[in-house]
Amino acid sequence: MLNGPLLVTERLILRPPGLEDFEAFADMCAEEETMRFIGGVSTRAQAWRMLCTLAGAWHIAGFSMFSVIERATGEWVGRLGPWEPEGWPAPEIGYGVRAKFAGKGYAFEGCIAACDFAVEFLKWPELMHSIDPENARSQDLARRLGATNSGPTRLPAPFEDARVDAWTQSADAWRIKRKDLLP
């Protein structure tokens, strides 16, 4: 059952998470390098609760991260998109893809669609990515999307000790940058 929008890009389908995503989601949550900057490695039980949180946010908030599906294979790539848990410093476009899909440009392609969704449908006046200062790959992606480092910010418990910077841009800046990006 589709519980929200379906976004389609050249290589990806973005849709709300579902039960069929759990095995791949749990696999991603067990990948040390993938999870290093996005909460750390999780058990299957923790992964289940995270997936249910993402799916439930569609019901409660009307938006959440999307499951990212590779169109050519139907394989689950990762999760990305709009995200704003209670106490978060600002609405965020977050992203994370499984190790086997890293470096293929899927996070970039999916984030373009997610930023469009946040600005044009959700009417967000600003986009933010919370990024660990040591996460060079995520910083590079944020730069490619047009965001700049606005300095340190704080996440709520249980992440209050995590070091993160807010990478931001206004909706108007996104619209200008968007003209230079993929169709």
Score class of each variant (00 low, 15 high):
Met1Cys: 15
Leu2Lys: 12
Asn3Ala: 14
Gly4Gln: 01
Gly4Trp: 00
Pro5Leu: 04
Pro5Asn: 09
Leu6Gln: 14
Val8Cys: 07
Val8Asp: 03
Val8Ala: 09
Thr9Tyr: 02
Glu10Val: 07
Arg11Asn: 10
Leu12Ser: 00
Leu12Met: 05
Leu14Glu: 03
Leu14Met: 10
Leu14Arg: 10
Pro16His: 11
Leu19Thr: 07
Leu19Met: 07
Glu20Tyr: 06
Asp21Val: 00
Asp21Gln: 00
Ala26Ile: 10
Ala26Trp: 09
Ala26Asn: 10
Asp27Tyr: 06
Cys29Ala: 10
Ala30Thr: 06
Ala30Asp: 08
Glu31Cys: 07
Met35Ser: 09
Arg36Asn: 03
Phe37Tyr: 15
Gly39Phe: 03
Val41Gly: 02
Thr43Met: 01
Thr43Asn: 00
Thr43Val: 00
Arg44Phe: 08
Arg44Tyr: 10
Gln46Arg: 10
Gln46Lys: 08
Ala47Lys: 10
Ala47Met: 13
Cys52Met: 09
Cys52Tyr: 06
Thr53Arg: 14
Leu54Val: 10
Ala55Glu: 13
Ala55Gly: 15
Gly56Phe: 13
Gly56Ala: 13
Trp58Leu: 06
Ala61Glu: 13
Gly62Val: 01
Gly62Thr: 01
Phe63His: 15
Ser64Glu: 13
Met65Asn: 13
Val68Pro: 00
Glu70Asn: 03
Arg71Asn: 14
Thr73Pro: 02
Gly74Ala: 15
Val77Cys: 00
Val77His: 00
Gly78Arg: 02
Arg79Val: 08
Glu84Phe: 14
Pro85Lys: 14
Pro85Gly: 13
Trp88Ile: 14
Pro89Leu: 04
Pro89Met: 03
Pro89Ile: 04
Gly94Lys: 05
Gly94Ser: 14
Tyr95Gly: 08
Gly96Pro: 01
Val97Thr: 08
Arg98Gly: 02
Arg98Cys: 03
Ala99Cys: 09
Lys100Gln: 08
Phe101Asn: 04
Ala102Glu: 02
Ala102Gly: 01
Lys104Arg: 13
Tyr106His: 02
Tyr106Leu: 03
Tyr106Ala: 01
Phe108Leu: 15
Phe108His: 15
Gly110Leu: 12
Gly110Ala: 12
Cys111Ala: 15
Ala113Ser: 13
Ala113Tyr: 09
Ala114Tyr: 01
Asp116Pro: 03
Asp116Gln: 09
Ala118Ile: 08
Phe121His: 15
Leu122Lys: 09
Lys123Gly: 01
Lys123Leu: 04
Glu126Ala: 03
Met128Ser: 11
His129Gln: 12
His129Glu: 13
His129Ile: 05
His129Phe: 04
Ser130Ala: 10
Ile131His: 03
Asp132Met: 02
Asn135Lys: 11
Arg137Asn: 11
Arg137Ile: 06
Arg137Pro: 10
Ser138Asp: 05
Asp140Val: 07
Asp140Ser: 10
Asp140Gly: 09
Leu141Ala: 07
Ala142Asn: 01
Arg143Ile: 05
Arg144Thr: 14
Leu145Val: 05
Gly146Pro: 00
Thr148Lys: 02
Ser150Thr: 02
Thr153Ile: 04
Leu155Glu: 00
Ala157Pro: 02
Pro158Glu: 08
Phe159Arg: 06
Glu160Ser: 13
Asp161Ser: 07
Ala162Ile: 04
Arg163Thr: 00
Asp165Ile: 04
Gln169Cys: 14
Trp174Ile: 13
Arg175Gln: 12
Arg175Pro: 01
Arg175Phe: 05
Lys179Thr: 15
Leu181Ala: 08
Leu182Glu: 02
